[in-house]
Design a protein around this nucleic acid. Structure first.
Lengths: 114, 114, 114, 114
DNA sequence: GTGGTCTAGACCACG
DNA sequence: GTGGTCTAGACCACA
């Protein structure tokens, strides 16, 4: 998992995002365990609490389980047809489609990502 | 232009986003003028400076022109092939596609937004 | 809001609990604003981050809104018939009923609390 | 006695809770013996010491007797009118009633648990 | 060894 | 002024 930190976004959000992408892409598989907060923090050179916050929010969102024995492991996909988050994602998508359109991303490019 | 503000998030960013969406969707047309900072602020119940900041950043980004007489008007689409922002948007899209996938947004729904 | 800290439970949980009770009892009304994290922390003699964590979890659970202008305010009761939390509460109740029974709380006393 | 362990929470506490519920419900009867620490640990896939800790605390609280020959057996109900724990349970109940109320558990449902 | 919690002090974005 | 984030260092419960 490569982390290219971008100093515009908060670090813990970027960590969450990288993990999210890794799960979605299959790079991280269900039940696979992630590095401990301490080792991950050391690896990427941030504070332990920063990683902890990322893991915890991912746990809240149902993507990770924190197992007292094995640390953080990738959860079963919640398949939560949780309408609140779906709606939120939809709004985010709409916004991004608008921004992309205005910054000149062609429909072809856009579709190539789906 | 309906503004459903979430006072949990950054207000001026939300205003920017709503305007961005309105331009992209054609709800706001080129050369059309937006409400004055003052009236917009009053309408949505926020501080005048907050709206001002939104308008100014949109001007910086080339989406609005500030005209002394007509106030803020929608600019010609810059169609800036600014590769930095295009790349950034692309990454954001990838992330959002991943998140949407994990929250159960079907490909059909996804495409319906493009 | 009186806080009798019990050193068995974590502080931030106790703060959450006191606020939860205050909302349920009507002591804190909808849209009423709570003290800022800083002042609350000062009042009860704990660290700012501890209070912050309480407020944030209550926000996640839908009981508080964090308004950038007014600080934390009591949310509209979510009336979330969110079955996960209902189920969790039900299990907690069953457990507590069992414990109470075994520690000699009569049915009368028990019912007097509902 | 079904054990649905959540490895997110303290394991030995969950074991204690399940046993407590089983005693209160009559599923485990007085003088009935529980599985040996070893077999219980094997069954639910946890460390032997973890189960041991659960049994020991239950012994301390007067719910189990540890018999060298028969292993752990359910004790006579202590019916301890220990006012400290009664008071504590009462507070816990009040809290849970508040939480349940806020998560939409009707009074009927609530009473059905007593 | 793991994560959970608390403290302390700092800086930043926002309104 | 508000909350949000990050760092640093410490202690604890748990397995």
């Amino acid at each position: 998992m490569v982390l290219n930190l971008d100093f515009n976004k908060s670090i813990y959000v970027q960590i969450k995002e990288e993990i999210t992408k890794a799960i979605a892409s299959g790079e991280l598989k269900i039940n696979e365990s992630l590095p401990s907060v301490r080792s991950m923090a050391e690896n990427i050179g941030v504070n332990l609490h920063t990683v902890n916050k990322s893991y915890n929010e991912l746990k809240e969102e149902g993507f990770l389980n924190i197992d007292r024995r094995k640390g953080a492991i990738v959860a079963q996909l919640p398949m939560k047809i949780d309408n609140t988050t779906r709606q939120k994602n939809k709004l985010d998508l709409e916004l991004l489609v608008a921004k992309s359109y205005l910054s000149g991303i062609s429909k072809e490019e856009f579709l190539s990502l789906s």
